[in-house]
Structure formats: C-alpha cells, structure tokens
Write a protein that binds this DNA or RNA. Structure first.
Length: 493
RNA sequence: GCCCCCAUGGUGUAGCGGCCUAGCACGCCACCCUUUCAAGGUGGAGAUCAGGGGUUCGAAUCCCCUUGGGGGCACCA
C-alpha cells in the first residue's frame, strides 16, 4: 500500500459526549494519518435513533476542534465518499442486505424480543454460549409480517468451518470458533442497519485502510470479517487499541467524575497538554521523553509503539503536564487563555481592574504557580489583586512576631513608602531590606508582615513584584487598614 | 455462564534472550535555592518484573498452567 493511500477514520456514535478514551482513539487515528500523509475521516454512526443524544454531534466535533484534530472528510467539510452520517446512507445498507439475502447469507427473522431474552437466559443456565438459536434460518420468512411491519434481518453465520482469524496489528492473530458466533442482526425492523453491518459497508465504501478502534470491539471483529467475506470485500487492517480505564480499573463512565473531554477544557486544562498527555496513554516515544511538541509527535508516531495493556487515567500527571505547558507559553497567549475563562465575572472583581495590561501583569506573577488556567485556580492565587478592598480572614502577625512589633513595623513601612518617590521592584527591594536592618528584624518577619497586610495571605507571588502590581496607593491604603486592625486587637487585649 | 484480550513500583511507561543487582516520568519524602508559595536543582523511599512450571549456558523478555484484572456476549454502538 502506498503511504498516501492510508485512510483512517474516527466513527463515534452520537449517543453521548465523547470521553477521553473516545478522543484518544480519534487522536491515534489522526496522528497516524498525519504521520503517513494519509486521510483522516470522521463518520457519525447514528444508526440508533432511540439513543441519540441532543447536541452530541456538535460536542464530538467541538472536542476534536479543541484539540486541533482536523479531518479531511466528514461533517462540515464533506468529501468524495459521503454522506458521512450513517442515517443518510440507508439505501447503501439496504443494497448490501438485499445482496446477502439473495446469496442466502442472510434471512428474515420473526422471533420476538421476549422470546430471545428467555432463550438467552436458558442458555446461560446451561453453560452454553449465548446466541440466537437460528429458528428462522431456514423458515423462508418474507420481508413483512401480516400486519405489514418489517422484520429484522440476520446474518447466516456459517455453521462449520475453520475458526475466524483476526490478524490484529497490535495483538497478533486472534482466533474465534464459528460456533460461538451466532446469527446476529444486521438490519433492524426500523430499517436501520446495526453497527456491524453499517461499519463494514462504510469502511469498505469509504476505502478505509486501517481500522483503529478500542479493544472493546475485538470480540465482534470476527463477525465483521464474516460480513466482509460474504459481501466480497477485502477487509481493512485492524488495530485494537488498549482501553483507558477509570481509577477503579473499570471502563470509563459518568461515575468517574469529569470524563467528557470538554469538561477538562472547562476546568482549565490546555489542549496542547491534554493532547500530549493522552498520546502517552498507550503510546511511547522512547524510554524517557514525555513532553513532546505536536510536530515531533506527528513525525514520530508509529503503530508499532502502541502498547497492549489498558491504561488508567491519572489526573495528577495531567495536571503536571498542564503546568509544563502553562510555563512554556508566552504570557500574552496565556493571558488570552485565562480571559477565556471569564474569571472577571467573579462578583467581587473590581471592574476598574480589567484592562489587558493589568491582566498580563497578573499572569506574569502566576505563570509559575498554576497548574490550571481556570477562573477558580487563578482566583485562589490572585483574588487580592482583583478586588479593591481586602477582607482579612487571617492573623496579621507573621509567625514569631508579636502584635506590637508587627504594628510598629507596619508603621515604619508606611512612612518609608510614603517618603519614596519611585514604586518599582528595583527601589522597593533595597529600601525595605535596609528598613529590616534598621528595625533589627529578619526579612522573613518584615516581609511576612507586609505580605499579610498587603495581600491578606501568607502564600503569594514574590512580594515586591506583587506590590508593584497592586500599586502604591492601594498598598499604602491596605497597610493603614491592617495597622488599624492590629492596633484595635492590641487595645482590646 | 460462555468467548476474547491483558499482566514491569500507587500511576503512565522503557525493556522485544545476555547492556537489568530493571531505566524514565508523575506522585511521595528530604535537602538546596529563597521574603512566603511556586518553579527549578540534587538526593531518597517505593517492583521477589502477578504466581508456578518449563525451554535455554543464560528469561522481565519464549512456551504452558494458575491467579488476577479488563472487555464482549441486544432489533446499543
């Protein structure tokens, strides 16, 4: 096969919002296409009308777009093999079904769901492989029943023959014996195909070269292989990707908290970090490299380095990775990201403090200190920069310093600051260091006292930088307020 | 119950018969830097390579069994 003939696809069903596992599958397919110069196709598998979820398609596409995963063919962009919504391809599946029935490889079945359920129950009790008992296989039922309703169509799985072998790129040869494959439904009574049929027919017509999908599909691949054969199609190359599991080692579901991809965006994770983290769940570059820019990812991605065992999604490592990307990002860009989270809508934020230059200054202070860019994260570190008046909820005495000492230190600081003209780091630092010496206080104590008074917190960005951003007037005002509190406390005791 | 897949520290992984008394990263601990918090740097704890049999001069690496985990078994995908 020519490299440019490589055509891979992501085929989600709009029955919910995609979680990180789904998107990781999309990512691997996309990376493989990018690496090989092939095409990445998005196909929406909306053959289950009853389970379709409002807004799911939009969410799927938005998830891909957020990560920067673009598609060569699919919704919005179109392509030569469309339509890319299975619900618009019903005639194609019907054609395949007709062919199979004509060949004797499929038949109409009249068995009721109730009957099938009790049959399965009985089989399980007897320890037999569960599956349709083929009652209708040779009955020669017609398409519609007496009341004119459509009947389901089942595939006539060969009764005897060698085991079906899936030659998987990741797992090697996987054999399944024919007797454990039952006569599965390929066309539902509502006229829609089942996944098995639609998937096979579309992958063939869309000339998909490699089917990379989650491992949960491995058990049904023999059915697909049987369909390819019956329809006279050459099967694609299969690669079943390891699953991503929740911390309880079970398949990802709503139970695992934030699972849909876009929730991570909303929580303050950067798409670059998420993409980098996701690719490491099941793939590795070498024995040490983990932070890998996208261009290198595309250049080096290979199917041979995809692992076999399932991975557990570890949020703490994602946070670390996110911090790496935050720190390597230009301040302006990071500021844009942060503004996107609308932190300024916090109710206490002073609207006079929202210009871009001020936000940029704040970002410079927190860039080394945050692991997420959400409003909560930024707020918790910088709320004292964003409000006019502080609401002290902390002891204003630094550890090891008494109230009266703190108060007199603050008094000295006020007069020092009021007498100096310049208010920038290069003047602030030496003069306050000098003051500490004069007062015979350790910098730890003096700076600690200032920090508490000016920020109301004992964990802040570097003091002088922070003071400059707060601004001379606000700093002095806050020092006065803090002093008043200290004096009041002193007098009542 | 039946079928299939998987198995290296808590987590993500490297390893594809000798380089392994098992490397890297996250997390954890300590120290350094330092006005606090981070970031950064250095060091440390943590794996009888699930267990047991083989094969081999030699196995985390190959084979078998056991155990554990996961997935699948719908007119869902």
């Amino acid at each position: 096969m020519n490299e440019s003939d490589i055509r891979v696809r992501y085929a989600p069903s709009p029955t919910g919002y995609p979680h990180v596992g789904n998107i990781r599958t999309a990512l691997f397919n996309w990376l493989y296409a990018k690496h090989s110069g092939g095409s990445f196709i998005v196909r929406i598998e909306d053959t289950d009308q009853s389970r379709s979820v409002e807004g799911a398609i939009e969410n799927i596409l938005e998830s891909l777009q957020w990560l920067g995963i673009d598609w060569d063919e699919g919704p919005i962009v179109g392509g030569d093999f469309g339509p890319y919504l299975q619900s618009e391809r019903l005639n194609i599946y019907q054609e395949a079904v007709d062919k199979l029935i004509e060949q004797g490889d499929a038949y109409y079945c009249i068995c009721s769901p109730d009957k099938l359920a009790s049959m399965r129950k009985e089989q399980q009790k007897l320890g037999k492989p569960p599956g349709y008992d083929r009652l209708c296989r040779s009955a020669g039922h017609s398409r519609k029943d007496k009341s004119g309703l459509n009947r389901v169509v089942r595939f006539a799985t060969p009764i005897e023959g060698p085991p079906v072998t899936t030659d998987d790129l990741i797992r090697g040869k996987v054999n399944v014996e024919l007797p454990v494959i039952d006569d599965f439904v390929i066309l539902k009574s509502d006229g829609f195909p089942t996944y098995h049929l639609a998937n096979v027919v579309d992958d063939h017509h869309m000339q998909i070269s490699h089917v990379m999908r989650a491992e949960e599909w491995l058990p049904s691949t023999p059915r697909h292989l049987l369909l390819y054969k019956a329809l006279g199609f050459d099967p694609p190359i299969f690669a079943h990707l390891p699953m991503i599991l929740g911390s309880d080692r079970a398949k990802l579901s709503k139970r695992h908290g934030a699972t849909t991809l876009l929730e991570y965006r909303d929580e303050g994770y950067l798409p670059e970090a998420m993409l980098n983290f996701l690719v490491l769940l099941g793939w590795s570059l070498d024995d040490k490299t983990e932070v890998i820019p996208l261009t290198e990812l595309i250049e080096n991605f290979s199917l041979s380095r995809i692992g076999k065992s399932p991975a557990i999604f570890d949020i703490t490592k994602l946070e670390w990775m996110n911090g790496i990307y935050i720190r390597s990002m230009p301040v302006e860009q990071l500021a844009e990201h942060i503004k996107g989270y609308n932190y300024h809508q916090k109710k206490d934020v002073s609207t006079s403090l929202l210009d871009n230059d001020y936000i940029k200054q704040i970002v410079e202070l927190v860039q080394d200190r945050v692991r997420k860019v959400s409003s909560e994260e930024i707020w918790s570190l910088t709320s004292f920069l964003l409000v006019d008046d502080l609401n002290y909820s902390i002891d204003l005495n630094p550890k090891g310093l008494g109230k009266s000492e703190t108060a007199s230190a603050i008094r000295s600081v006020i007069s020092e600051l009021e007498s100096t003209k310049d208010f920038n780091v290069s003047t602030l630092e030496p003069s306050l260091r000098e003051l500490a010496k004069e007062l015979n206080l350790s910098t730890r104590h003096l700076f600690g006292a200032i920090r508490l008074a000016v920020t109301g917190s004992n964990a802040t960005p570097p003091l002088f930088e922070t003071m400059v951003v707060i601004g001379r007037d606000r700093v002095i005002k806050r020092l006065h307020v803090a002093l008043a509190i200290l004096e009041e406390m002193g007098s009542t005791k």
